[in-house]
């Protein structure tokens, strides 16, 4: 069985975001790019399944420009067998999904994993769109995955409970936290081997996007915190009523 893990290239989660001069994008100067945390967990689980002999090949794919190659090579260093980069700006979820769908049409996979969202745009759309475009079986919020004799056991998080499903490939799974405990760290050997693993660049078949970013803004700054002594509880009521006007 072959797994495709779809990888988003996102700013490090500790990045202090600065809006670019066009007001439509963030300023990428000095940003450290990482694998989207949900995708990294999905990749970790795919590699665990490969280590257990249940998967024959783990491939990672990304839609993005050359800037994303460091992220793809880190995926290779972590243990992916090869990488595919579709060379276009990932303008929106539609662009990403339509280009990934071409990758899968050219080379079928038994299991496709997409992180539930990307930590930059939080769109939560690519997995669903991709499954739709490929007319694939689709399971969301997957927090556990195992394979026995080509049968997939999938765990889902639902309201206050866990749900266990069985299915078989081909299937697209949208991955939630819990699929792996901690992301795998690349070994020295893996980092050296990443140089020689294939990183295939394919041209985009579509640069069509369905949305246009008009403006991005930073959230308003948090208001200053006022500390009030415990014995002065009445003051809290007064401030909530007169300043915050919430009472």
């Amino acid at each position: 069985m072959k797994i495709l893990v779809c990888i988003s290239n996102v700013p490090d989660t500790t990045t202090k975001i600065v809006i670019g001069a066009d007001d439509k994008n963030i300023n990428t100067a000095g940003i450290q790019w990482i694998i989207n945390p949900w995708d990294e967990l999905a990749l970790t689980r795919a590699l665990e399944l490969k280590d257990a002999g249940k998967i024959s090949e783990v491939v990672v794919a990304n839609v993005g420009t050359a800037i994303t190659e460091a992220t793809l090579r880190k995926s290779l260093a972590t243990g992916a067998d090869r990488a595919i980069r579709v060379n276009t700006e990932p303008a929106d979820a539609w662009t990403v999904a339509s280009n990934l769908s071409e990758v899968v049409k050219n080379e079928p996979f038994d299991i496709i994993l997409c992180g539930i969202e990307s930590s930059d745009h939080n769109g939560s759309s690519v997995g669903g769109l991709l499954a739709g475009m490929l007319d694939l079986n689709f399971i969301s919020s997957v927090s556990g995955l195992d394979i026995e004799n080509e049968k997939l056991t999938v765990q889902r998080e639902i309201d206050g409970e866990k749900e266990i499903l069985e299915t078989q490939g081909p299937v697209l799974l949208v991955i939630q936290k819990g699929i792996a405990i901690v992301p795998r760290i690349p070994s020295m050997r893996g980092i050296m081997q990443a140089r020689t693993k294939p990183l295939q660049i394919v041209e985009a078949t579509s640069s069509e996007s369905m949305t246009e970013t008009v403006q991005v803004t930073l959230p308003p700054e948090k208001g200053k915190c006022k500390m009030i002594d415990a014995e002065n509880a009445g003051e809290v009521i007064r401030l909530l009523r007169e300043e915050a006007k919430v009472l």
Partner: peptide, 10 residues
């Protein structure tokens, strides 16, 4: 290099 940065991050 990319490898050096990967090692630092690891």
């Amino acid at each position: 290099t990319e490898e050096q940065l990967m090692i630092r991050q690891a």
